[in-house]
């Protein structure tokens, strides 16, 4: 169990909003930590409705995308719902280039992500 929290968790009704703490999601160790904390929301806490808020994130690498794909699989396997929001344009371009915008349910703002969750 790590003592460093990489996600800020907030409950909005029955939805869990997880906001990334880091500006740069690049470093391998950090990505591992973030992955474990994200997966814990589903695997350990049994949360079904999750919004990932990217408003702090300025950079992310392909290794981080890998963790998000795994997270999406976990949530789908648990018959839950996952939404991504507040992604800045440069990072949104990363999702578009890799066509991951087709896999993820991406909303512009946290409010929009929470709406109808």
């Amino acid at each position: 169990m790590s003592s460093t929290r990489r996600l800020d968790i907030e409950e909005v009704g029955d939805v869990t909003v997880a906001k990334f703490v880091d500006k740069k999601i690049l470093d391998e160790t950090n990505i591992q930590l973030i992955g474990n904390q994200m997966f814990g929301l589903v695997d350990e806490d049994g949360r079904k409705k999750i919004v990932l808020d990217f408003s702090t994130v300025e950079y992310l690498s392909s290794a981080a995308l890998g963790k998000l794909i795994t997270m999406d699989k976990k949530v789908k396997a648990a018959r839950g719902k996952l939404r991504l929001c507040a992604i800045r344009p440069e990072i949104l371009e990363v999702f578009q280039i890799t066509r991951l915008d087709k896999i993820f349910d991406i909303k512009s703002t946290q409010e929009q992500a929470l709406d109808g969750m």
């Binding site: 690498s61 392909s62 290794a63 995308l65 890998g66 794909i69 795994t70 999406d72 699989k73 990363v94 280039i97 890799t98 066509r99 991951l100 087709k102 896999i103």
Partner: peptide, 17 residues
């Protein structure tokens, strides 16, 4: 990595980016 069958596989994206 953008082929339909590879979309959820974590490989090849680094070079593509």
């Amino acid at each position: 990595p953008t082929a339909e069958e590879n979309l959820d596989r974590p490989c090849g994206r680094g070079i593509m980016l």
